[in-house]
């Protein structure tokens, strides 16, 4: 399960960045609302770091009144493209898995 979660988590993160940039703690808060996506918070940072290094997201710093400046993550064109590709394939993928699971239950 953790491999599956890891695989889709990055697309969930990209999807969360689709509308607007967000900072790490903000992403964690939204992800934390879906317990199935919940992992130890700290493991999100290596993922964010990879998204940045592979050019799917970039970052900028914003000063904060309370506390340290925040590192915002923003979707790049490349990231948007990867997200669209995933979003296009996901329904077929999900339906196929559902089909196998249901057939498996009947036999």
């Amino acid at each position: 399960m953790s491999q599956l979660r890891k695989g889709v988590l990055e697309y969930c993160v990209l999807a969360l960045l689709r509308e607007r940039p967000r900072y790490g703690v903000e992403l964690l808060e939204v992800l934390g609302d879906s317990p199935v996506m919940a992992t130890s918070q700290g493991t999100l940072y290596p993922l964010l770091s990879r998204l940045r290094r592979s050019g799917l997201a970039d970052t900028f710093l914003v000063e904060s009144d309370s506390g340290p400046s925040r590192r915002y993550y923003r979707l790049t064109d490349q990231g948007r493209q990867a997200l669209e590709e995933f979003a296009g394939q996901w329904p077929g993928f999900r339906d196929a898995v559902d089909r196998f699971l249901v057939t498996g239950a009947e036999s």
């Binding site: 900072y23 790490g24 703690v25 918070q41 700290g42 940072y45 964010l48 770091s49 904060s64 506390g67 340290p68 925040r70 590192r71």
Partner: peptide
């Protein structure tokens, strides 16, 4: 650095 920033901000 990421973890440090996280801890400081939460």
């Amino acid at each position: 650095a990421d973890l440090r920033e996280h801890i400081e901000s939460v």
